[in-house]
């Protein structure tokens, strides 16, 4: 965002599914199949230890990743403390903690910049 004497230009909000890098979400869907069960209820975020202290939002990161938008995950995901509360509250049995670990792993080793 460029600040131009008080005016700014918002980042484009268009999402191009065709050019987005879906490799991470494909990988996650494969190694953590339960992540496909998410209904986006936000329970994980509500109880999140990290989310309690900052605007870290695990539901949102998850949702963005599924669209192939990996920027937020790359920037934010290490904020998680792996405490596992999200997994315990999830009504759908999504193994969020494992998913986070796998995402971190993927970002570190395989994701193209």
């Amino acid at each position: 965002m460029i600040n131009f004497w008080g005016y700014s230009i918002s980042e484009t909000r268009s999402i191009n599914y065709d050019t987005n890098d879906k490799s991470m979400t494909e990988y996650i869907a494969r190694v953590v199949p339960s992540s496909k069960l998410c209904i986006g209820c936000g329970g994980c975020t509500a109880g999140c230890t990290a989310g309690n202290l900052t605007n870290f939002n695990i539901r949102k990161i998850q949702m963005l990743m599924k669209r192939g938008e990996n920027k937020e995950a790359k920037e934010q995901l290490q904020k998680c403390m792996l405490c596992g509360k999200c997994m315990l509250v999830c009504p759908r049995g999504v193994e969020t903690r494992k998913m986070i670990l796998e995402m971190l792993n993927y970002i570190k080793t395989k994701l193209k910049s």
């Binding site: 202290l53 870290f56 290490q78 904020k79 670990l101 971190l104 570190k108």
Partner: peptide, 13 residues
């Protein structure tokens, strides 16, 4: 595997 820097948990007040 986590990439921790000294700022990773800087958000904690």
């Amino acid at each position: 595997i986590l990439r921790v820097t000294k700022d990773t948990y800087a958000y904690v007040p």
